[in-house]
Design a protein around this nucleic acid. Structure first.
Lengths: 194, 194, 194, 194
DNA sequence: AATGAATGAGCATTCATTCAT
DNA sequence: GATGAATGAATGCTCATTCAT
């Protein structure tokens, strides 16, 4: 990895939590120089503009989520258990190397949808990728006789994702962990009933 | 209503959709004077600062949602039908006088949670108020023998709310109306199975 | 004149000499706040951007030249004498309220031709307006039997203007006042021979 | 020519047209690295700073003009014909290897006179050198009985130069080639009448 | 009570230049 | 000798807020 690549990586690592917490518009260049200890020139030497950093930060945060999920899924065998990984992880953010500030897809979706088409696109792609992944797992589970044959994989996948994201929002907002536990239990029930 | 009160009301009405779309940080005083046709002095004469307007705009947007829900609920009789009003309304924003920019609780929750304690508080209160309202309806439905006696009202209420908000986010992000329909169908099923 | 109009006028008056000396690109916002004693916000409250000030400053400088020329022309009677006003004025900048930094048309023409289409347009219009004015005076002089009937008014007008501007450039560059005197004498001869 | 000398020459060749079009202040280091394909380090290894390149670029552009003039003058015999070379060349830039962006003396004179003493000095020297050259040709033409004995060589030289530069400015500004033709005809007449 | 001109800190970005490698 | 990452002052511009009128 060249010096430039290391610096880019460093900038992304240090700024990704800020973008995830304060949002794109709420994160200033000054926040970025403070977080990295670098100068403005150094940031602009490695990225073409703030957008460029924000986009890379989103990717970084997303990859972090993905890595946690993948790692946890690798430890279980059935598709039902794999689906249950989602609620397990999202119910216990802090026990995993999850991005500070919560779910980057949710955070980005809400800020970017009316204001930042590029970020919106990235968030939309992430949701669709996530949904497709869940759909495939359900399909395999059906083929495997784990799940009922009449299950609608897309409907189930979207419902799981929507409910998780809603739970994340509610918990972050109210600070009530038992709210999250209750909602996650509903999802677990849904998965058990497949 | 005094002249001052009418002006305040006018400012709130005109700016509320902007705050809901662009967010608190993304809405500038200039956006506000453009939307109202008033002068800066006039806005500052009626509100102490931008925060003050934003808070009032949130209340206004929330009341708009509440009015739609109440009105629809008044047209049905059973508690099951009343619960089904939520999916009906949230699946067809545009057919109701719903706030432009989507669900104000969701929008505000995500932006404000790490940055604006006062707005966060309002959004949290709204969620809790909403949850309590659903809880009470379920309790009454149980008392009424509409719903099974072993239903956990809070868990169901939170799950419904979380899933609706997740559906709103996903639909706005991806633009796929069939995604929303699929998720809302899951919620309707959940309500039917109570 | 409203307060805003007075401030605009004040900004133009104070910055016009700077634009004429340093050019559009060479004049910074800081130069402008220093020259006016105002703040950035005040300048941007009265002009939409730096361009807007530069365009107004050009007009101001041009009007200053025009006023001097008109005033001097009013004191003489024949068209020959009127034409001789140009050399008299351009040979003695400092005795007239002429814009600091020299001829604004020349200064603007050279900077703007490859870089700033709006300013270029203004300078081009000024040159064409100037030429038309001289053409009309020559035509009237011919009609009046002051000048030879076979004079080509446009050729003469353009030659006078080109030579004056060349003289201004050479004098400013070399600092040699006798160079200017020599060139102006050639123009005067040309006018006498019409 | 050493490697270093070749690189210097290469940088000057590639940047000279940019300085002539955009001016000293308007040409950035980035313009220079783009034009040359070299790195910043490479430019700073061969020149002490931007000034240093600008000065060399001016010399390069000037030499280019001079070469064209010399070459054309070599093809004719009388001093009158030699003087007429100026109008011929300046009337048909594009048929000669003339610097892109027009006359470098004029361009530099206007930008540098109030802002850049070193460049101003170079432009002033160029004008004086040019004038001296024309003066010498006229003196020889007088000695030769080509021109009238009472001709004032310096006045004529300065007038020719001023008028040419004015014509260049007017044409570039207005885009009217017939304006240039008319002015050049006046100069040709002046030369014929010597 | 309402105006709108003025404020000045803050914004993202570009600049010419340096210097460790 | 050449590289290119880093610098930090300077750029044009927007912001929420104030206050004399």
């Amino acid at each position: 990895m060249s010096k430039a690549e290391r610096t880019k990586q460093f900038i992304v690592e240090k700024t990704a939590p800020i973008f995830n917490k304060k949002g794109y518009a709420g994160t200033s260049l000054n926040d970025m120089i403070e977080a990295t200890g670098l100068t403005k020139g150094s940031i602009y030497g490695n990225f073409v503009n703030k957008d460029d950093v924000a986009l890379a930060a989103f990717d970084f945060n997303l990859k972090k989520v993905d890595a946690v999920i993948r790692q946890e899924m690798a430890t279980v065998n059935t598709y039902r258990e794999k689906l249950l990984v989602y609620t397990k992880v999202y119910e216990n953010f802090y026990e995993f190397p999850f991005p500070e500030g919560g779910c980057p897809v949710l955070n980005t979706a809400i800020e970017a949808d009316d204001t930042h088409p590029e970020l919106k696109k990235k968030a939309a792609d992430a949701i669709i990728y996530w949904k497709e992944k869940v759909v495939r797992m359900i399909q395999k589970g059906i083929a495997n006789n784990e799940f009922a044959a009449n299950t609608d994989p897309e409907q189930v996948a979207l419902t799981i994702i929507a409910t998780i994201e809603g739970a994340v929002m509610i918990t972050k907002l109210t600070g009530k962990l038992n709210y999250r536990r209750a909602i996650m239990k509903s999802i677990d029930r849904l998965i058990h009933d497949l």
